Simulated assay, not measured.
Amino acid sequence: MPKPAGFSYVRRPDGAVLITHRARAATTLRGGRAEKFLAEVESGDAQLVMARWTGAYKFGNERRAREHPRNR
């Protein structure tokens, strides 16, 4: 499975974290969720962490798409 790319994040002065994907806002985290995210992104692969937190990680349709006649 290819690694997700194109994610970035910005810490705001009010403590919120804005996660963007290809220069478009994907999600905003505030409070405890923002703190958990920052701790996790510093300790692991940042791109995978941001993909998981935004929900763009696995959609469950990868196997069905691979079996479709158009993709053979």
Rank of each mutant, 00 (worst) to 15 (best):
M1P: 04
P2A: 07
K3F: 03
K3H: 08
K3R: 14
P4M: 11
P4R: 11
A5T: 15
F7Q: 00
Y9G: 04
Y9S: 04
Y9Q: 08
V10D: 15
V10K: 14
R11F: 12
R12Y: 07
R12I: 00
P13H: 03
D14P: 02
G15T: 13
A16H: 11
A16W: 11
L18V: 15
I19K: 13
T20P: 09
T20L: 10
H21Q: 01
H21S: 00
H21W: 00
R22C: 08
R22F: 14
A23H: 05
R24A: 12
R24Q: 13
A25Y: 01
A25V: 09
A26Q: 04
T27A: 13
T27N: 13
T28V: 13
T28P: 12
R30S: 03
G31E: 08
G31D: 11
A34Y: 03
A34S: 04
E35R: 10
K36H: 04
F37I: 02
F37P: 02
L38E: 06
A39R: 09
E40D: 14
E40F: 08
S43T: 08
S43G: 07
G44C: 05
G44Y: 05
D45T: 15
A46N: 11
L48H: 05
L48W: 02
V49C: 08
V49M: 01
V49Y: 05
M50P: 11
A51F: 01
A51D: 03
R52A: 12
R52K: 14
W53S: 06
W53Q: 02
W53M: 01
T54P: 08
T54Y: 14
A56T: 13
Y57D: 11
Y57E: 05
Y57N: 09
K58M: 14
F59K: 09
F59P: 08
F59A: 07
G60N: 02
G60S: 08
G60W: 11
E62C: 02
E62I: 05
R63K: 14
R63F: 06
A65G: 02
A65D: 04
A65R: 02
A65H: 00
R66A: 10
R66P: 03
E67T: 13
E67D: 14
H68V: 03
H68E: 04
H68I: 04
H68Y: 10
P69A: 07
R70G: 05
N71A: 01
R72V: 13
R72H: 09
